[in-house]
Amino acid sequence: MAKVIIIGAGGVGGVVAHKCAQVPEVFEEIVLASRTESKCKAIAAEIGRDVRTAQIDADDVPALTAFLEKEKPDLVINVALPYQDLSIMDACLAAGVNYLDTANYEPPETAKFEYSWQWAYQERFKEKGLMALLGSGFDPGVTNVFTAWMAKHDFEEIHELDIIDANAGNHGMPFATNFNPEINIREVTAPCRHFENGEWVETPALSTKNSFDFPEGIGPMNIYRMYHEELESLTKNIQGLKSARFWMTFSDNYLKHLEVLQNVGMTRIDPVEYQGQQIIPLQFLKAVLPDPASLGPLTKGRTCIGCIADGVRDGERKKVYVYNICNHEDCYKEVKSQAISYTTGVPAMIGAKMMLTGKWSGEGVFNMEQMDPDPFMEDLNQYGLPWTRVEIPV
């Protein structure tokens, strides 16, 4: 029995709170904290068991440290903004609390996703006897575990990896992002980096397009190569990996709107002066776009996220596809959320469960693929993200 503090009350925070509440034998006490406590209270009111709420500014390390020292949780689940990862890690170190997040740190002034800042905490967490688990969402997160599971059960070596993420759903809005608009647009407009023949190759954002025929009736969709943070840790931790790519679907409508917004400067992350005030255009754009948490009742259709690994077993080439399909409407019925938040929030709960039950343990900073994939894969089937394995002829 354990106590957790969930920091962040957006779409993902709501899912994490709901899913932790469904497993009372592990999550005995849940505290949901955010800068805006009213959001926490609204989520707590939806949940059928007691969830306490609190107001906390995740950027204020002394205040957050004092809060953690008072509450004495076994684990902090960070589903706040990626900009706040380091301040929350600092507070966890100061208060002696284990840490988990779903997305790697990104400095506010640069759209640069990389693990270097968090990996630099390795010795500090180790010295304190604490564990930090990074990227326990879907991608990153489940995709790392899918890869580790295939490396353990299907291959002696994986040589090529393609991570393919499709949102085949529709919310009917002219333009809206399925998770935090600021983070989404920064991610999509950043230059693409992929791993090819053991080296990183950079290309312009969304400049490489393919078509992929998604399973179970979803059918063919355009996929665009882009950089995603799990590539950085997987290429470091999966032995023998020579090439790794990440692909995501985007509708023509989304790309048209994004191009116009870029052309008129609304995706800029540097401040501009307006009526005597400094504003950041992308943050203003976020304020006028629909809140992703409001898209739950509007979104129909499915997501499909999976990994295709190409490698060798017993001297023979082999290719395996492991994927999950998630239904937006089913997610809304269960936890009042669309599938994008659901597919991130459920793995955050499972990663926390792995740590709190001792199935995953260690001292220092870890990525998901460094842990035993088997108990996590079992829990995906149990808690709402069932997966399918298909062998592809070569």
Results as ranks from 00 to 15, higher is better:
Q262L: 05
T102W: 11
I308M: 01
A309L: 01
C40W: 08
I183L: 02
V31I: 15
L295W: 01
K318E: 04
N180V: 09
G8Q: 04
I6F: 11
S87D: 15
N144F: 07
A166F: 11
I7S: 03
T343W: 08
I392Y: 10
H194L: 07
W360D: 08
P373H: 05
M349Y: 13
M150L: 07
D90F: 13
T65M: 07
L75Q: 12
D213W: 14
E273R: 15
E273S: 12
G96L: 04
I308D: 04
N178G: 14
M371I: 06
Q262T: 12
A287H: 14
C304S: 09
Y321R: 00
I280A: 02
A111I: 09
C304G: 06
L298W: 11
E46K: 15
L75P: 12
V346N: 05
N367G: 15
V23P: 10
S337C: 00
F376I: 04
G315K: 11
R193F: 06
P82Y: 01
I279M: 04
V394S: 03
V61M: 12
V201Q: 07
I56A: 09
E28F: 13
T189L: 00
E230V: 00
V76S: 10
G296S: 06
P181Y: 14
E329L: 04
T177E: 11
V288C: 00
A94F: 08
T110N: 13
S294I: 03
N210Y: 14
G198V: 03
S251D: 07
P140N: 04
D310Q: 15
L285H: 07
D59R: 15
D213L: 07
K41Y: 10
T147D: 00
R225Q: 15
T208H: 11
Q239G: 11
E229H: 14
Q370N: 03
A168E: 11
V201F: 10
A95E: 05
P271G: 06
I340R: 12
A348T: 08
L64G: 01
G384E: 09
K70S: 01
E71L: 00
D59Q: 14
Y274Q: 09
M266T: 07
V97N: 07
E199W: 09
V97P: 12
L261T: 05
I350D: 10
L298K: 13
A120D: 10
C307H: 06
N327Y: 09
N180I: 08
I308C: 05
Y342T: 07
A151F: 10
L255C: 07
